[in-house]
Design a protein around this nucleic acid. Structure first.
Length: 649
RNA sequence: GGGCCCGUGGCCAAGUAUGGAUCAAGGCGCCGGCCUCCGGAGCCGGAGAACGUGGGUUCAAAUCCCACCGGGCCCGCCA
């Protein structure tokens, strides 16, 4: 007999047993649902119920007495997974597992289900779009943003594993001033083919161009303030100018050739600011030249992203261009619909969406969890020059996504919380309640650099590529040191797996709500509580199985009597439950924590007991089955995090 | 000023959704140990905590409620 969720089987036996006992002892008090928890120490069993605390109050009895009577009345003979039921503490009922049966059930289930173990499908699968990464095509993906693809990809894997149909979408934000800036610079250079990884090349152009344009703008403004003689204003502008001149100096020494070329190109333009705005408008209008130029730059950059993401094991099913939404008329159609609602108004030439009014009139304040007297800021939908804003376009994009999916998870930085809220309110305002209800903003906090904030506009960032390079380099040194006999090409392959594993684990292990201060030792950790530690444990298990040179022939599961062995069996049985929780709560960190705990237990076991040489052979076989199950579970858990489990390292 | 998020040993951090039984996990760092035996990226032991502060709810609070303090983010005709 096998089970896709052994611990749930045990729990339902406990539930049935408890219900029957309650019926006998206090008829009419049978609860609909009994909640079980894991007792704090091993001696208290594997599952416990605190139901007597509530029940006893109703009956005017001491909880522990009631627990005693229930245990007395319990008949465990018909429940093969229940070894013992005990009243304990102030009124707990503790359930002990029958390990002879439970170990067999668990180990055989894991080994037979193999890749599928851990996956419990939902009854009603949904079509879910996970939008993630969506880094603007202006510069390489930096480590602050890298949290996004890693989280998004793991979420997608977890949801698929739950039986949903998942599509990963990348929203290419090619509409907006910033893209025009980089395209403008690229054009001034004569649209060269990059001699390096394209996103890095584009990143340099972006930084230098915005810097030069900014300086030029500030100088012009200073000229203007001279006539007005506003001292405070002049001082402020001078400070800003000083900062940018400093950045320019930095950039010039880092990239002298590129800097000079761009400087020459931009010098000739009397008003770069104006040219950029023109380009932006032309692109939004779908004019041929602008389209050609901006698409070319964006595609170059995305090519670099694809390389980076592929290396990290992150995949997308669809690349959605924001500009397509504008050109196809979808955005203006939505705007027309919004204008029909009572929530938009013209204010000094711009179109505003009154989110506060919408919240009040639609009565959705409580549903959105907003405080009574919090006034939701209004949202500008259309600029005075007729161009749209990011969130406006996002409304159209979201509705487009909902044509294909029942639910949308947006992996987007916490700093966009307000915009995401306004977006959701706009959906309600348009009458798309089902869509709004199923729109999830999965927010994550920033990764900061010690000392300063990452700023792509100022060229201050550590790229995801650099981090992976460094991690793989260090992993290679480590592999060479520990497995000098390994063939060179294996070393290279393994170093790649281990280095990337370290980075992915580090980014997914911490609660995404918390800000993370970047440091190399955190991201490239090969010791306990790291991706490589779990990978190592997996390789160790593989090694034992290799050395054993045989399958477990006649395992006697009842011989697994050591507490550690039983703790491992229990941990193995937990995987399906952990996967369910992690997917429902959108918490990849639960998987990471789980795998790390299992690895800890396994290493302790490994150190304490022989497997191959254990006597009698039936025990050795049972332990081999245990090792095999650990191998499978670690591999499956790592897979949900997008981390490869090597057999040797 | 308003909103959201975070606050747990020297440092990093789990646990907070669904309040419970013990020494409040674990890691880094520090101190002391480990097999000529299945991989030492490991294992064992030790020291180290007012769970930001103050109230409240409860038989029971790191967990729920209120106030306050500290940090981050947001409140743009940027994205």
């Amino acid at each position: 007999m096998i089970s896709d969720n052994p611990i749930a089987d045990f729990r339902s036996e406990c539930g049935a047993l408890l219900k029957r006992a309650i019926e006998k002892v206090c008829p009419g008090e049978t609860p609909e649902r009994v909640i079980f928890e894991r007792p704090p120490v091993w001696e208290y069993g594997q599952l416990a119920s605190s139901i007597c605390f509530e029940l006893a109050r109703k009956l005017g009895e001491k909880p522990i007495n009631l627990a005693g009577r229930l245990v007395e009345a319990a008949d465990k003979s018909v429940f093969p997974l229940v070894e013992d039921v005990v009243a304990a503490g102030g009124g707990y009922i503790n359930f002990h597992i029958n390990f002879a049966n439970f170990s067999r059930l668990t180990l055989e289930s894991v080994r037979q289900l193999d890749n599928d173990y851990g996956s419990v499908k939902v009854d009603k699968p949904l079509k879910i779009i996970v939008e993630h990464t969506s880094v603007n095509p202006l510069h390489p993906i930096h480590i602050g943003q890298a949290r996004n693809p890693v989280l998004g990809d793991s979420l997608a894997r977890m949801l698929k594993h739950r039986g949903h149909t998942v599509y990963c979408h990348y929203y290419v934000d090619d509409v907006g001033r910033q893209t025009a800036v980089v395209a403008y610079g690229y054009d001034k250079l004569g649209r060269p083919a990059p001699a390096e990884k394209p996103d890095h090349f584009i990143g340099k152009i972006y930084t230098i161009t915005s810097c030069l344009v900014e300086i030029k703008r500030l100088k012009r403004e200073l000229e203007r303030t001279k006539t007005t003689s506003d001292d405070e204003q002049t001082a402020r502008l001078n400070r800003e100018l000083d900062e940018w001149v400093g950045i320019a100096f930095e950039l010039r020494s880092k990239y002298p050739e590129l800097f000079e070329k761009l400087l020459q190109g931009i010098e000739k333009d009397t008003d770069p600011e104006k040219s950029i705005n023109q380009l932006n408008r032309a692109y939004e209008n779908g004019e041929k030249d602008a389209k050609q130029l901006i698409r070319e730059v964006s595609r170059l950059c995305l090519g670099g992203f694809m390389e980076t993401l592929k290396r990290a094991g992150v995949f997308h099913d669809s690349w959605d261009w924001e500009s397509d939404l504008v050109w196809s008329g979808m955005v203006s159609a939505i705007l027309e619909e919004l204008k029909q609602t009572p929530f938009t108004q013209r204010l000094g030439g711009v179109l505003e969406f009154d989110a506060e009014k919408a919240v009040n009139m639609l009565g959705i304040r409580e549903k959105l969890g907003l405080k009574k007297d919090y006034a939701v800021p209004s949202l500008t939908l259309v600029r005075a020059d007729g161009t749209t804003l990011y969130t406006t376009r996002d409304i159209a994009y979201t509705l487009w996504k909902f044509k294909k999916a029942d639910k949308c998870v947006n992996v987007i930085g916490m700093e966009q919380s307000l915009a995401q809220l306004q977006l959701k309110i706009a959906l309600y305002a348009l009458g798309f309640h089902r869509q709004a209800d199923n729109l999830v903003h999965f927010a994550y906090n920033l990764v900061t650099l010690p000392g300063y904030k990452m700023s792509s506009r100022r060229g201050r960032y550590i790229s995801f590529d650099e981090v992976m390079d460094e991690a793989v380099k260090r992993a290679y040194e480590e592999v060479s040191k520990r497995s000098p006999q390994m063939p060179e090409e294996d070393k290279i392959r393994v170093a790649e797996i281990v280095g990337i594993g370290a980075v992915r684990y580090a980014l997914v292990e911490v609660d995404p709500a918390k800000p993370v201060e970047f440091n190399w030792d955190r991201v490239i950790n090969f010791e306990k509580n790291s991706g490589p530690y779990i990978q190592y444990t997996h390789a160790r298990a593989c090694s034992i199985l290799r050395k054993a040179g045989k399958k477990p022939e006649k395992p006697a599961y009842e011989l697994l009597k050591e507490r550690l062995e039983r703790e491992i069996v229990l941990a193995l049985a937990d995987l399906p439950q952990v996967c369910i929780e992690a997917a429902e709560l959108l918490k990849p960190s639960l998987i990471a924590e789980y795998a790390n705990n299992l690895a800890d237990k396994f290493n302790t076991f490994y150190n304490a007991y022989p497997v191959i040489k254990a006597q009698p052979p039936e025990l050795s076989d049972a332990r081999l089955a245990l090792v095999d199950a650990v191998r499978i579970v670690l591999r499956n858990a790592l897979d949900l995090l997008g981390i490869v489990a090597p057999e040797k390292m």
